[in-house]
C-alpha cells in the first residue's frame, strides 16, 4: 500500500482506511491487489496442542476484538498458538519480533526514497490495521518506549493509528486485533501499568510431561517412549531455574532434540546439541547438565 505524497505537506490528519485514497503498486500480483495481506495468511493448519481452554478464550476475545497479551516462558508455544488461531479464525497474521532497536517507524511505516522522490511505506502494524488481521508483537516490552505509545490508541475504544509523519489517521479495519507476547521474569523489563491495563491476558506455561511428549512425537515424528525420555530430561533442566539458569529447556528446544534424534543422532548427542550446550555458558551449570544427561540415558 503506497501513497505518493509530499513529505513536507502539513494539514489535518486524513482520516482514512479507504484504499481509494492510495495508489497500489502496479507491479504487485493481482491477488495482492484484492488481498494485500495474502502473504500473511496461514495456509495450512499449524499444529497446536491445547493444554486448557485457551482456544475458546482467544476466540471470545477475538469476537470482541479485545487486545490480548500472551504471557509465558520462552518457547512454550505462544507464537505457535497465535499462528494456529489465525488459521482457525481465517485471519491474516502479521508478526513482528520486537527488540531494543525497534522504533515506532519500524512498526507504522516510514518515508523512503526512490528514483522518483519520496514514497511512504506502511509498516507491518499499519498493514494489519488498514486491511484487517491479527498483528502479533512478539516480546513487546523489548521494544523502545515510543513503540509502546503507538499502540495505545489502537488498544482502546478509539481503535485508531495516527501516522504523524504522514498526517494520516488510520481507523482500524473491523477484523484487526492486536496480540502481544510477554515473558515475565525477575530480570525482564516490566510492562508499564498504562500498557498492561489495555490488554486481556492469557497465561501460558510448559505443557504437562505427557502432553509435551505428545507434542514432540507429533512435531518430530519420534516414538512416544523416546519423546517422553527427552521431556523427562527437559523437565529436570527446569529445576535449575533460579539456581544457575534463568529458564530451563523450552518445549521448542525439546522438539529440536527430537528432530535431531530423527536425523539419526543418538539421544544423548541430540540432547547435548539441542539442550545442554545451548542452555548455558556457565561452567558449573554446564558440567552439572552434562552429568545429568549422562545419568538420564
Amino acid at each position: 500500500m503506497i501513497r505518493i505524497a509530499d513529505a513536507g505537506s502539513g494539514g489535518p490528519f486524513v482520516a482514512s482506511h479507504d484504499p481509494a485514497t492510495t495508489r497500489r503498486p502496479t507491479a504487485t500480483m493481482t491477488d495482492h491487489q484484492h488481498d494485500p495481506l495474502a502473504a500473511h495468511r496461514v495456509q495450512r493448519e499449524p499444529y497446536y496442542q491445547a493444554s486448557g481452554d485457551e482456544l475458546m478464550l482467544f476466540e471470545a476475545a477475538h469476537a470482541r476484538r479485545l487486545p490480548l497479551v500472551l504471557k509465558g516462558p520462552t518457547g512454550c508455544g505462544k507464537t505457535r498458538f497465535v499462528e494456529h488461531m489465525a488459521w482457525r479464525l481465517k485471519r491474516p497474521l502479521v508478526t513482528v519480533a520486537c527488540h531494543e532497536e525497534l522504533s515506532a517507524g519500524d512498526l507504522v511505516g516510514r518515508w523512503l526514497l526512490d528514483s522518483e522522490g519520496t514514497r511512504w511505506q506502511d509498516g507491518p502494524l499499519t498493514q494489519a490495521v488498514r486491511h484487517g488481521g491479527l498483528c502479533y508483537l512478539d516480546e513487546l516490552v523489548e521494544a523502545r518506549a515510543d513503540t509502546l505509545v503507538v499502540i495505545h490508541p489502537l488498544t482502546d475504544t478509539r481503535r485508531q493509528l495516527p501516522l504523524a509523519q504522514r498526517n494520516e489517521l488510520v481507523h482500524a479495519h473491523p477484523d484487526f486485533q492486536l496480540v502481544v507476547s510477554y515473558n515475565p521474569s525477575p530480570t525482564a523489563r516490566e510492562m508499564k501499568a498504562s500498557t498492561r491495563q489495555r490488554f486481556c491476558a492469557l497465561e501460558f506455561s510448559y505443557p504437562g510431561p505427557e502432553l509435551e511428549a505428545g507434542i514432540l512425537a507429533r512435531e518430530a515424528g519420534l516414538d512416544i517412549a523416546r519423546a517422553a525420555a527427552i521431556v523427562a530430561f527437559g523437565v529436570r533442566t527446569r529445576r535449575l531455574e533460579g539456581f544457575g539458569l534463568d529458564e530451563g529447556a523450552s518445549t521448542r528446544m525439546l522438539v529440536h532434540a527430537a528432530l535431531l534424534v530423527m536425523q539419526g543422532l543418538a539421544i544423548t548427542k541430540a540432547c547435548r546439541l539441542a539442550i545442554v550446550d545451548a542452555l548455558t555458558d556457565d561452567a558449573d551449570v554446564h558440567a552439572a547438565l552434562n552429568s545429568a544427561l549422562d545419568a538420564a540415558f
Binding site: R236, T237, R239, L240, F243, G244, A283, D284, V285, A287, A288, L289, S291, A292, A295
Partner: peptide
C-alpha cells in the same frame, strides 16, 4: 560444590 549441587537438583530436585 556448585556443579554437584546443580547436578543433584537436576536429578531429583533435591
Amino acid at each position: 560444590h556448585a556443579p554437584l549441587n546443580h547436578w543433584l537438583r537436576l536429578l531429583w530436585g533435591t
